[in-house]
Design a protein around this nucleic acid. Structure first.
Length: 846
RNA sequence: GCCGGGAUGGCGAAACUGGCAGACGCAGCGGACUUAAAAUCCGCAGGGCUUAAAAGGCCUGUGGGGGUUCGAUUCCCCCUCCCGGCACCA
């Protein structure tokens, strides 16, 4: 380059500095926002016939509470980055969004503001959609799903009818969890520490009500087994579901009641200890108890007390804390294995809802039974010993001794067996003799879906005096939720007070009938909404099987871990039920699940009640959507909790401003690259490819976008540092400009507004989203020289610079002739030299 | 009690397979530019000791204690604290 040309380049730089504009996020973002609003097809997926490889990325749909919170922003920033990356990788991307729009807050708000829930909800949706669009999320709104609208919830009703036909939906009277605050029933999953999942301070009460249930327990076994296949799910979530389902293999054994024809069936996982059973323990609510003690008024009173006490403890969520106690019924049962008569007790630590509500008590080998037996002086009989005890039988193990891998003693013909084998043999024995059988028990209960609320899907059932329970015929769907219903939150289901709704004609006998006035749990809505996205406008069916087959399973689902049990287990159940209806082929809805961490501020989860929330609107108006999004990805890895620090957002904003300035400055340079690139030019090129490698592997692997963004910042720093070399001709301005071009592509998934603006500044007219993700060249990313430390006995003593990949022998030689090292080794004996290629040299010396 | 996850500078964090601890950012300090400030740019920065100061040198350091190894934030054992889930589930 001639000196005159150099001067021109410099002048060019000065000029572009002159017309440098400050990064104005609001200006850029409103410009592109307007543009994107006019291009609704921008984020639309190709139809299922498309040849491209599909990618379905889904974020959990929000409840339209009124405004987005930072947790949403984080969730959707992760999903949006991924969606945009996948687009740039050439995938056919489905990236939908919708609204989990039924639910109690709408009724509370209606009560407070005297506006209909529908209006309140739809207003909230408008506002939150505005926020999402302002944040620049790439949703295809043509597939939007709003669960409170009849074109969606009619299919809830349709599914319900299908489930009813197949016996998967049924009605029974049962004890239910009742939240006085919500004035409705809760599913087991919605009870947290004995309190309502929405009202953490409100204890749940037990009530007896006629309820509709979905038979999720039919799928209990498959739900557990398939967890093993969900390798793309966090182990934590799989464990939580496994525990929740609580599959436990064991046996049922019948004990005859002495002096009676009755029998008591117990469930045990440790039939190998049955010779150690010294009592039977019954749940206070066990139906047989009142029969056993029918002619003892005193005991009946004590029973009532015990039942009341257990219920109170259950209501208070303190079941595990109550001291164990109970009473002897005066009756005996016969152990079928040894015909021994053992006393029958009633105890507060036995739960009617698990197993058979009755156990054989083996104090020597069960912690709870031991505690109880000690209190009431019930026999403790040891029937298993640790294997090592074989020889020295006088020494007893510490009680209670519950370990497996032990040996049976005092157990008749089964003595001497290992307990694993004994379980098999003794269960078989019981089966052959007809007093017992193999049994698998689950903790999981059927899913109660009846809610005594207005703002939900009406359950499509009629009650006819003549015909009984009559399902609404399919052709009569949807059963519309009536408008203008008075919400009082008292006196049961609001719909029951709407005669036009309640009174109906029986489709069978044409006589009068009453409609079911309960509505469905809103978790029904979210159990299958992601299928609807694949053909959201379809009017003739819940879904189009071919579309589902193309798009499913969901490649990546992203949301909070708080849904690990409720939503994610219901969704899996619904998918299996849909498969059994022949609607779909996949057995699982979600291939990969990602659970992001919480957003924390000042050491606590952001929440209104703590008053430590940060408003996304506020952040966007102060720093812009790009800065808000980039910060939410930069501040912590997505799976960890994120501590919100506002000056961190400011830092990100500064970084974006720097990128903006650089691009403005170098956009139009096109001087030719010199024929033999300088070392500085090669360094910059290397840094670029290292950055590309970092960002690309983060997307493909562990999703640590914080390190991706840090790498891009490093590249920016490298460009700034290289600026001095431009005027001297060491680095062509053209190279800087093309480096920046690639940098803009890398920034596109994180800061779409800024990236689009700069793309245009760089003279590109194409749609950024349709550009290919830049490829890194491993050759160019490779370091040529490495500086490695030389250690003596593990301590850094010197450093040398060597060509990368230099032969170990040569590295060793160069290390040992280093001046500092030679001086330090003087008078010492070198025992060993370890050379770690390109990393370090460690000399072990004495 | 059981099952997960975590603890690294003043702060958020990085170190991916046992190999240079603290990348990147925030806050801080010093300097340049400016009448001044903002913005921007350059530089310093784990802690301690040594030194008049600096350069340099030395020691020490990833919650605590032990171990394996030439070498440990990383692997093993024990312990503490924090977060999440489950919790009389037979």
């Amino acid at each position: 380059m001639s000196s005159q040309e150099k001067t021109e380049v410099l002048n060019g730089a000065e000029q572009s500095l002159d017309r440098e504009q400050r990064y104005d996020a609001q200006r850029i973002e409103s410009k592109w926002h307007q543009r994107w609003q006019q291009q609704p097809e921008l984020y639309r997926a190709e139809p299922p016939t498309s040849a491209g490889k599909k990618y379905y990325v889904l974020e959990m749909l929000p409840y339209p509470s009124g405004a987005l919170h930072m947790g949403h922003v984080r969730n959707y920033s992760i999903g949006d980055a991924l969606a945009r990356y996948m687009w740039m990788k050439g995938h056919n991307v489905l990236h939908p969004m919708g609204w989990d729009a039924f639910g109690l807050p709408a009724e509370n708000a209606a009560l407070k503001n005297n506006r209909p829930p529908r209006e309140w909800t739809l207003n909230n949706i408008t506002n939150m959609k505005r926020q999402m669009n302002r944040l620049g999320f790439s949703y295809d709104w043509s597939t939007e799903v709003t669960t409170c609208l009849p074109d969606y919830y009619r299919w809830n009703q349709w599914f319900f009818l299908k489930f009813y036909e197949r016996g998967l939906a049924y009605r029974r009277k049962s004890k239910v969890n009742w939240c006085p605050e919500c004035a409705t029933v809760l599913a087991n999953e919605q009870v947290v520490n004995g309190c309502c999942w929405r009202h953490e301070e409100t204890p749940v009460e037990q009530r007896d009500l006629e309820q509709w249930f979905l038979r999720i327990t039919n799928y209990a076994d498959e739900l557990v087994r398939d967890l093993d296949k969900l390798e793309g799910w966090p182990e934590k979530v799989r464990t939580m579901q496994r525990n929740w389902i609580g599959r436990s293999e064991g046996a049922q054994v019948d004990f005859n009641v002495a002096d009676s024809r009755g029998k008591i069936t117990v469930f045990t996982t440790r039939i190998d200890t049955i010779f150690g059973a010294t009592s039977i323990q019954l749940a206070p609510e066990h139906p047989v108890v009142s029969k056993l003690i029918a002619n003892d008024p005193e005991l009946l009173t004590r029973l009532d007390e015990l039942v009341a006490e257990q219920r109170a403890a259950r209501d208070a969520g303190a079941l595990g804390e109550a001291e164990k106690h109970g009473f002897f019924t005066g009756r005996y049962a016969v152990n079928p294995f040894n015909n021994e008569k053992i006393p029958i007790w009633v105890a507060n630590y036995i739960l009617m809802e698990y197993g058979t509500g009755a156990i054989m008590s083996v104090p020597a080998h069960d912690e709870r039974d031991y505690e109880f037996a000690k209190k009431y002086d019930i026999d403790v009989r040891i029937v298993i010993l640790p294997r090592r005890h074989e020889q020295s039988e006088e020494k007893e193990p510490a009680l209670p001794y519950t370990a497996m891998n032990s040996l049976l003693i005092n157990s008749g013909e089964f003595s001497g067996l290992g307990n694993e084998e004994a379980i098999q043999r003794m269960t078989q024995f019981a089966e052959e003799k007809g007093f017992g059988k193999r049994k698998v028990t689950y903790r999981l209960r059927d899913w109660g879906i009846s809610r005594q609320r207005y703002w939900g899907t009406p359950i499509p059932i009629l009650y006819c005096d003549k015909c009984g329970i009559v399902p609404v015929p399919e052709r009569d769907l949807p059963i519309l939720l009536p408008e203008n219903v008075e919400i009082t939150q008292q006196g049961g289901s609001p719909l029951a007070k709407v005669p036009e709704f309640v009174n109906a004609k029986c489709p069978k006998c044409k006589g009068g009938a009453r409609r079911e006035t309960d509505t469905m749990d809103t978790f029904v809505d979210s159990s299958w909404y992601f299928y609807r996205y694949t053909d959201a406008k379809l009017a003739t069916a819940a879904l189009d099987s071919r579309a589902v087959e193309y798009w499913f399973p969901i490649d990546q689902y992203i949301g909070g871990v708080e849904h690990a049990i409720l939503h994610l287990i219901y969704s899996r159940f619904w998918t299996k039920a849909m498969r059994d209806l022949g609607l779909i082929k996949n057995a699982e809805p979600v291939e990969r699940l990602f659970t992001q961490g919480m957003v924390i501020k000042s050491g606590a989860k952001m929440s209104k009640s703590r008053g430590n929330t940060v408003s996304p609107d506020d952040m966007v108006s102060r720093y812009g959507a790009d800065s808000t999004r980039v910060y939410s990805l930069f501040a912590a890895p997505p799976d960890r909790d994120l501590d919100w620090q506002e000056n961190g957002v400011e830092g990100v904003s500064r970084f974006l401003a720097k990128v903006y300035r650089l691009v403005m400055k170098y956009a139009e340079f096109s001087s030719k690259a010199p024929s033999s690139p300088s070392a500085a030019a090669r360094d910059l090129e290397r840094k670029l490819h290292q950055t590309l490698r970092r960002v690309s592997t983060d997307f493909e692997g562990r999703w640590h976008f914080n390190t991706s963004i840090a790498a891009i910042m490093e590249l920016v720093n490298a460009i700034t540092a290289a600026e001095g070399q431009i005027s001297s001709g060491g680095i062509p301005a053209k190279q800087v400009s093309s480096t920046l071009r690639t940098l803009v592509l890398m920034l596109a998934p994180f800061a779409p507004y800024m990236a689009s603006e700069l793309w245009q500044t760089l003279g590109e007219r194409s749609q950024l989203l349709r550009e290919s993700w830049p490829k890194f060249n491993p050759e160019l990313a490779r370091e040529e020289q490495v500086e490695i430390p030389i250690q003596i006995n593990g301590k850094n003593r010197s450093r040398i610079v060597v060509p990368a990949g230099l032969d170990d022998e040569e590295v060793r030689t160069r290390a040992t002739i280093d001046d500092k090292i030679r001086a330090l080794l003087d008078g010492k004996e070198v025992v060993k030299v370890i050379v770690v290629p390109n990393k370090l040299v460690n000399i072990v010396a004495r």
